[in-house]
Design a protein around this nucleic acid. Structure first.
Length: 70
DNA sequence: AATTAGCATTAAAT
DNA sequence: ATTTAATGCTAATT
């Protein structure tokens, strides 16, 4: 059995969810950090928008504006 | 050290 | 040009 702390696991979970959300988003209307934060809240993760932004950076995902395509 | 609140800055919308 | 929305910055908190 793993000896990882629960927090380490959940931060990985959150990052996985963020990746999925961005991969499946409508590229004409990309999800903002705020929107991602709301989605996580609905899934039961109460994490601040600034933290979402930092996770996004750690995942090398650019800000919503730059993900938008014509 | 990681997360967050409050404010500052920048880009987009009107 | 003004207002609003999205993101960044830094200090405070835990």
């Amino acid at each position: 059995m793993s000896m990882d702390s629960g927090e380490e696991v959940s931060s990985r979970e959150v990052k996985r969810i963020l990746k999925d959300c961005v991969d499946n988003e409508d590229k004409k209307k990309p999800l903002t950090d705020d929107a991602l934060c709301d989605i996580l809240k609905e899934k039961g993760y109460n994490i601040a928008r600034r933290t979402v932004a930092k996770y996004r950076e750690q995942l090398d995902v650019p800000v919503a504006r730059l993900r938008k395509e014509l």
